[in-house]
Design a protein around this nucleic acid. Structure first.
Lengths: 211, 211
DNA sequence: GGTCGCATTGGACCAACGTCCAATATCCGC
DNA sequence: GCGGATATTGGACGTTGGTCCAATGCGACC
């Protein structure tokens, strides 16, 4: 899925600057997609595309922070590198606190921008990897029947079949069957693996698929 | 242990400002310890004391970033709130990337400082809590004999006693004994609990106590 | 030289787990 | 109503896990 090369999404309203930076990045070997405004970018953005966002803060209308918010609200975790001309510390702090990948001031050195982009792309790659793994696990949990999920919850807390049966108001035999199916559907062969999966995915155990 | 109230460690080389801020914080109900220089603070600092650090960046000699480095090198995770008069974005970015709790610009509003301090103290409290839990678990692991640790590693990966015995070049019977002692020393009654402990503590399984 | 911690193993025995085959009951959608 | 998914249970059987009692060999420390 992530075999496609990562893209540097460039958003800058000054056409000349945008073109210049785009050329610069392409020359360095990056895949680039340039946009003249946050809105334009948002319209074309697919969260599934790996990459990072290079965003100029000095833009009319939507400011960078809002775009950052909008993106995270949409479930996109694209790393954002902010570029700014003015030395605006409070804005910088806000951006960083909300997870900005970097915050560079103009005039900026090419190498600084390249380095920031490489870090951001690397971070995005890792994040996508772990997100994909988590989604995979969640999908397995979703394939369980409600009863099987009940059993899973108790198994990962270390309950014995006997206790699980009591807690769910049935008998041990039934639990064994459910449990076997849980192991099969989750594609694990030991309780240890099962617990690891659930821990690494749900980061808790409120996998309720509440719907 | 953490029953002592948290302290706001204030470092500022301007005596007048320092005194003023100290009074301000005390009036707000914070416990305050003021220092005239990073060195002075470092000399008196005990990483075990909960609290946060309020640090003025505009100081001669050691700058704030270095103090931040020194602290983390010493294993102290005290949250740091930077105060700065100049609008220095690059420094702000550096500080934030290295985990600064906040970065405020003068002139600052009292309420902003208070809010930042409260967030930092809360963060420190939580961090200490989880660190304490982790230390507790590490201590249990440390109480294991080398052989028991070997067994633990394999148990949490879901190996059967038989397989563990083969891997360690011994017989199943021996493993059962070690395994029983591991469970006892780790104070758990099921593999599930054991795996959870190890996951939450070691965040991996390189608990080698290499020394 | 003796004691202690550690690792090892045996035998016996029971509890717990897992799986095969088989069967029943319910609910849901076509 | 029928087929399918889900939940339930029984019986049988073999594997695995866990504990009790008991014992041996080894290296370290006093």
């Amino acid at each position: 899925m992530s075999l496609q090369p990562p893209t540097v999404f460039l958003v800058d309203d000054e056409a000349l600057v945008r073109k210049a930076v785009e050329r610069l990045l392409r020359a360095e070997g990056f895949e680039v997609a340039a946009f003249a405004s946050p809105a334009e970018f948002l319209a074309a953005h697919d969260p599934a595309e790996p990459g990072c966002l290079v965003l100029d803060m000095a833009m009319p209308g939507i400011n960078g922070l809002e775009l950052q918010e909008t993106l995270s609200a949409r479930g996109s975790a694209l790393p954002i590198i902010f570029l700014t001309g003015r030395a605006d510390v409070p804005m910088c702090v806000q951006a960083m606190k909300r997870g900005a990948a970097d915050f560079l001031t103009k005039p900026l050195k090419d190498t600084d921008l390249f380095a920031a982009i490489r870090r951001a792309l690397e971070h995005d790659r890792n994040a996508r990897q772990t997100r994909a793994e988590r989604e995979d696990i969640r999908a397995r949990v979703a394939s369980l029947t409600p009863r099987e999920r009940d059993v899973l919850k108790q198994v990962v807390t270390g309950q014995l079949n006997k206790q699980i049966a009591f807690n769910l108001g049935t008998v041990e035999k039934t639990i064994k069957v459910h449990r076997g199916r849980v192991m099969e559907k989750m594609r694990v062969t030991s309780v240890a693996e099962l617990v690891r999966l659930v821990e690494r995915c749900g980061l808790g155990f409120q996998f309720d698929t509440e719907k």
